[in-house]
């Protein structure tokens, strides 16, 4: 018998919370992006756990699509960060307040 699914869900919750704290606390845009990846991984872990628990491959298919969307998101986000950094020479979120009305 394998490890009970609750442990996986608790690990996913812990991982998600660490990612959320990182988004709220850190100022560097790149680190905030990495924290988004942590939260996506927590969601993926939960998907796979439920897929195993419910004996349904749909959860794993969802993880497949989440991976694709995460890759696209990172590519576009990196483009935005490079563009911002080229104009403002800063990667700290507090310094990027030009859009403020």
């Amino acid at each position: 018998m394998t490890v009970h699914a609750s442990w996986y869900l608790i690990l996913g919750a812990v991982l998600f919370s660490i990612g959320a704290v990182g988004i709220l606390v850190r100022r560097n845009v790149l680190v905030m992006f990495m924290c988004v990846e942590l939260m996506l991984n927590a969601a993926n872990l939960t998907f796979v756990t439920f897929s195993r628990e419910l004996n349904d491959v749909a959860g794993q298919a969802s993880v497949f699509f989440v991976l694709v969307v995460a890759a696209a998101e990172v590519v576009v986000g990196m483009g935005i960060i490079v563009s911002i950094f080229r104009n403002m020479r800063s990667s700290i979120a507090d310094d990027i307040h030009v859009l403020k009305g």
């Binding site: 942590l38 991984n41 796979v48 897929s51 195993r52 794993q60 993880v63 991976l67």
Partner: peptide, 20 residues
Amino acid sequence: LVGTLIGVAVLFLEEQADFL
């Protein structure tokens, strides 16, 4: 982050999600 991602991959293997 690499460590975290590889750890999650090991957990995927543990849950028989080989492709993922």
